[in-house]
Structure formats: structure tokens, C-alpha cells
Amino acid sequence: MRPLLYLFSLLLLGAVSPARAAPDLLIGSGSLTGVYYPAGGALCRLLARAPAKLPCQVVATGGSADNLAALSRGYLSLALVQSDVQLTTSPPPALYRLFNVHQEALTLVTRQDSGIGSLADLAGKRLDIGNPGSGDNSTMRLLLQAMAWPDETVAALSHLPGSERAQALCEGQIDAYAYVVGHPSSAISEAASLCPIRLIPVEGEAVDRLLQTHPYYQRTRIPADLYPGVDEAIKTIGMPAGLIAGPQIDEALAYRITQQVFNRLPQLRRLHPALSQLDRQQMIGEAGGLPLHPGARRFFVEQGWLPPLPAPAQHALRSP
């Protein structure tokens, strides 16, 4: 599947048009089996409630890099994007971050009988790293570079859609796959329901080098007992996902969106398990390469959560 195929198909059907604004906000997410899609749906449900009453639709996409491209073309209003992709992609200056959402973790999944227990054991194996428009792909490529392996070290690199990886793993078509995802994840649960799985720790000297050269990654853990057979916490690296606004989101609308989310944060936490640990400080903190939206900043400053910018640095988006 080409990166923006799903969105282009919507265009052909008349569901989305950059020339004629749709009445609803469109939130770009990720694959149907990841956390982005239900997280986007949770945000939509929250935004549609009073007093904001901002109806929206969640759109399945190829992932973070695709979402940035779709935002810049006007196919999406908002999108979830990994913080590392925000930093390593060169989007146009009209894109802004509203706030961070859930924490994501690089998750390496294999079968219990694969003989793979560490990163080094991936040598000679068939590894799926997701489609080229996804954060899975970009993160794993950086990790493989940090490991300094020649191209032939991994027997095969594939790029399956998220919805096909669990079955491919359990049918023996691949030996492991990488997913950058919040937990618990239905994609990992699906694999565990099809065959006994193991999660591979992401640690060691190569990971240390990666963290030194790419400080937007953080050490994190996947909690124990979320999936059958995974009864210990797994060390890995991660990063937050951010809600990114396209050019059509002016200051007033960004303020309304941010206000609705933060005034109803307890309700948002209850809408999906991956959102249950949302923390206001983490959501506001710096975590990506895109600047904070002036509308979001205005709300945070009014609440006393951020200091106002010095007068020369203040800037705002104007409503069309």
C-alpha cells in the first residue's frame, strides 16, 4: 500500500477535499490495529461533547510520516505523530503541536519458540519493520544503524501493514516484528491470541549510542502482565505521540480543542487503557520538533501552566 493511498481513496469518493472543507474535523491516526486509531476515536468522542461540540472523524492512515504529509496537503485537520518523526521530518512551517498524548514504546514481538531473546539474536532472522510511512519503520532503521550491522545481517526486512503482522508471525512467515505503540495494544494482544509470544528487550550498547545521538528517545518499560506469557516488565525505548494541527486550525479553534481536552482530562483517561496514565505536565512538556500552537499556548498561559512568551517572541495564527 502506498503511504497516502487510503486518504487518496477518500478524496476520490468525495469524503475529503482540500478545496472544500469538510464540516467535521478529520483526525489522522494509524493502522486499525494500533493505538493511534482508538486514541483518535477517543479524542473525537471527547471533542464532540458539550460545550465544545466539535464533531470529528478518525481516519486510518499509514502512520506518523504519512500524517505529516497529509496535514501539509490539507487532507487532515489534526493527526497523531510520534515526537521523533516530528523532529526527523521537515514539515512546512504551518504545522503546530497542540499537546502530547500517550507514551509509545518500541515493541519487538517474536514467537516463544523462535530462539530470539535479545537484539543480537535478530541476526539472520526475518524482521518486519512496518511500512515506510510509519514511525515503526523510522525508529527501527535508526536502531539498526546504531547496531552497525551490514545489510545482509538481517535475513530479510519486510514492510507489512500492521493488520497483517500478527498472523505473519504466528504462521512463520516472519520471525519478529517491530511496533512503536502505546500499551496495552490490540495488535500485540492479537499476536498473543494466535500463538505464544515473547517481547524482546531493547537494551545494550547500540541502544546507549542511539540515546546519545537521538535524545528525544527515552528509556521506558512495557508493563508486565498485559499480554499472556509476558509476566515481566520489558526494557525498551519510547517517546510520546503528539496531536498536530494543520494550517486550517486557527488560534481560536486550537484554543477550543485544547480547552475541551484539558478540562475533561479524567473523561479522556477512561476512554482507552493507553490513555489512562495521561499526565498534564507530560502532555504540555517539550517532546517534538514542531512549535507549540499559539492557541494551545494561550490556554496554558491563562491556566498558569506556562509562562507567557517575551513580547518580541509572541506570534499568533489569524483566523481566515
Rank of each mutant, 00 (worst) to 15 (best):
Arg2Asp: 07
Phe8Gln: 10
Leu12Met: 14
Leu12Glu: 15
Val16Phe: 03
Ala22Cys: 07
Gly30Lys: 00
Gly41Arg: 15
Ala48Gly: 13
Arg49Cys: 10
Arg49Trp: 03
Ala52Pro: 07
Leu54Gly: 06
Ser64Lys: 06
Ser77Met: 00
Ala79Tyr: 00
Ser83Lys: 15
Gln86Met: 11
Pro93Trp: 01
Tyr96Trp: 02
Arg97Asn: 12
Arg97Trp: 10
His102Cys: 09
Ile116Asn: 02
Ile116Asp: 01
Ser118Met: 06
Leu122Arg: 03
Gly124Asn: 06
Ile129Lys: 05
Pro132Ile: 13
Ser138Ile: 10
Leu142Pro: 01
Leu143Pro: 08
Asp151His: 14
Val154Met: 09
Ala155Trp: 03
Ala156Ile: 03
His159Leu: 13
Glu164His: 14
Gln167His: 09
Gln173Phe: 12
Gln173Met: 01
His183Tyr: 13
Ala187Leu: 07
Glu190Thr: 13
Glu190Arg: 15
Ala192Asn: 10
Leu194Lys: 11
Pro201Asn: 10
Pro215Trp: 08
Arg219Ile: 04
Thr220Val: 15
Arg221Leu: 10
Arg221Gln: 13
Pro223Leu: 14
Leu226Gln: 12
Gly229His: 08
Ile234Gly: 10
Lys235Met: 05
Gly238Lys: 15
Pro247Lys: 01
Thr258Phe: 12
Arg264Ile: 03
Arg264Asn: 15
His272Gly: 14
His272Val: 02
Ala274Gly: 12
Leu278Phe: 01
Gly285Val: 03
Leu290Phe: 02
Leu290Asp: 11
Pro291Asn: 06
Pro294Ile: 02
Arg297Leu: 09
Gly304Asp: 05
Trp305Asp: 03
Pro308Gly: 05
Leu309Trp: 02
Leu309Asn: 06
Ala316Ile: 09
